[in-house]
Nucleic acid binder design. Structure first.
Lengths: 343, 343
DNA sequence: TTGTACGCGTTATCAG
DNA sequence: CTGATAACGCGTACAA
């Protein structure tokens, strides 16, 4: 019925032993080159393919990276920024011979923790793309010593690859001060569930202070979630609370910023005439929006690939176990939601 | 060193046999309820987690669905329409106890065919989200009898879940005729590598004919790829070829349509004053664009979930082996890139 | 309920 | 140095 071959069958057919076949396949141990070729050719002919689970079972390696993506935060694969990072990560690790699997906590009837899933799959490493950093399951997971890299949250003890938020915020605020020559600013931030957003807000306050901005809490609004609509609502809440329009709105996530712009348009507020808007991320649509969005470009390729490289280094050279924070440089992309002041 | 438990260890510690442990875990066979509870409690205490690969090795089932996504067509997870379908599919199958894995043809040094990968992983089924239908590897794969569902291409012999393109095109053309009251139309299509795009173009011709549109080939332009820029370029090519502006541009994919709109704006062509634009898909940004795009809404949730349901039915009840084509209804969403003619 | 063979590739050990 | 043998990893299923 199931006529699948295995190394035993093949060994018999070639008058060799199973271990020889294995050696030929994996290029390990000592084996005569001619024998190797003979095996390889035969295998190609008959179309034998080794079974992943048998190899994994024995070698205790799965060549699989578990990915935490979204579950809690209600952002799915639809979120273009994270998807893009994930795509780059995926490409990198596949080149290194690893595959990607989504960590899941509910499978059919079974409920399990992140960690249990990882044990079950024996993943070699973990990549946290987006996750709610208030999630206790995450802390359990990262405490277990499985190599782990994160691009979203800065948890102590995890290797983190993240955009240089300090540089980004600094670029924005200095640009506002030196080029736009404005001082009345307000901030719309992504939800508090993400550490990165928290960090950006904190940086706005500290850097803003040194630059002479007066960024009181009243001028900071946290969106409830990700996405266009959250931005729209956030802008609405913020502006109806303030007694006059800020000169510049710094929105710490592009997808929110687009919603913010929409709200301003609906209110017949001219951009950049009355309010200037600056985003963060440079998602694909930022440049295509009307008006095209001035923003901080995060280098998604770099983020994804660096995370991949770091994780695989960790897996293959476990001696480098001192947690590091990699900051990827960002860049200010000036488009049409801002306008430099005349000299 | 590796202190992981297995059913043998546990069996010994509880003075039971390995098979009893297995039964307790899987709730199969006959087993004393008290024994079962004892085992379950113990397992929870010591934190034992069964190993996926061992189970797979024995049971020859992997509870894994292989997904073909993009590889050839250069669209990645960034493509919001496909990502969204995939997300819904993923959710559905996870509820049914299956996991998703991306089918890959290059792993480290190893190059393999889709089919080889599937053998290696012993996937239970295959889901083709996007793929180049000229890809011969795809035909090899689907010919092997692994349960397979596609949402993109209509290959003979594969179960297909696809939006009702006929209904969609019909809705568009009738809307143009009856409400916009226009006859001069042109079409910008997605790349020929996708069967769905081909089908839409063909339908435009046939339905167009019965409605009295004169849609000659000169008025049909194929974009070179997916995405905003391809749409922009496509519009440019089309309009520079035609001697006068069409009244309505039907763009068979939203991401292209947004690029088309941008091109028209850059040319100072008023939408919908001079040219009206209709898209297809209803991606998230379609409604947020300026102007908001009139388009055909594909039901991504329905598509993804139906595909999931169909595939799992196929896996679990292999007797239903007559290939079917599921057409999911679509809907015309009227926004601001079109304008009804006065009565 | 329990014993045990099985699935299949890997690897340590051993003989030629 | 080449290749063979056998034990191993771990859960499942059927016979006892």
């Amino acid at each position: 019925m199931d006529d699948r071959k295995n190394i035993y069958t093949i060994a018999k057919e070639l008058n060799l032993s199973p271990s020889t076949i294995s050696k030929a396949l994996n290029n390990t141990g000592s084996i005569n080159e001619m024998t190797r070729q003979r095996v390889l050719n035969y295998i190609k002919d008959v179309g034998y393919v080794p079974t992943a689970s048998a190899r994994k079972l024995k070698s205790k390696r799965s060549y699989t990276i578990g990915v935490i993506f979204t579950e809690e935060s209600n952002v799915g694969l639809e979120h273009s920024f994270f998807s893009s990072i994930l795509q780059n990560f995926k490409t990198y690790i596949e080149n290194k011979g690893y595959e990607l699997a989504f960590i899941v906590t509910k499978l059919g009837q079974h409920q399990m923790s992140y960690y249990e899933w990882c044990l079950n799959k024996r993943v070699d490493g973990i990549y946290i793309v987006v996750g709610n950093y208030q999630d206790k399951g995450l802390y359990e997971l990262v405490g277990k010593g499985i190599p782990c890299v994160s691009t979203d949250m800065i948890l102590s003890g995890i290797h983190t690859v993240i955009s240089d938020n300090e540089q980004g915020v600094s670029l924005v605020l200095n640009y506002i001060k030196d080029h736009l020559k404005k001082t009345e600013i307000a901030v719309i931030s992504g939800p508090k569930s993400s550490k990165a957003f928290e960090e950006r807000v904190t940086l706005c306050k500290t850097i803003g202070q040194t630059l002479g901005f007066n960024l009181v809490d009243e001028k900071i609004e946290f969106a409830e979630s990700f996405g266009f609509t959250s931005g729209y609502q956030g802008a609405k809440r913020l502006l109806s609370r303030l007694d006059h329009l800020p000169e510049v709105l710094f929105v710490t996530s592009d997808d929110l910023a687009l919603g913010v712009i929409k709200y301003l348009e609906d209110q017949k507020i001219d951009i950049p005439g009355q309010v200037q808007v600056i985003g963060f991320d440079d998602i694909a649509f930022a440049r295509h929006f009307t008006p095209p969005l001035t923003t901080i470009r995060q280098d998604k390729t770099n983020l994804g690939m660096t995370a991949g490289k770091l994780l695989i280094d960790l897996i293959e050279q476990p001696e480098l176990h001192i947690p590091t924070i990699h900051k990827c440089p960002v860049e200010l992309v000036i488009r049409e939601t801002t306008q430099e002041a005349a000299q």
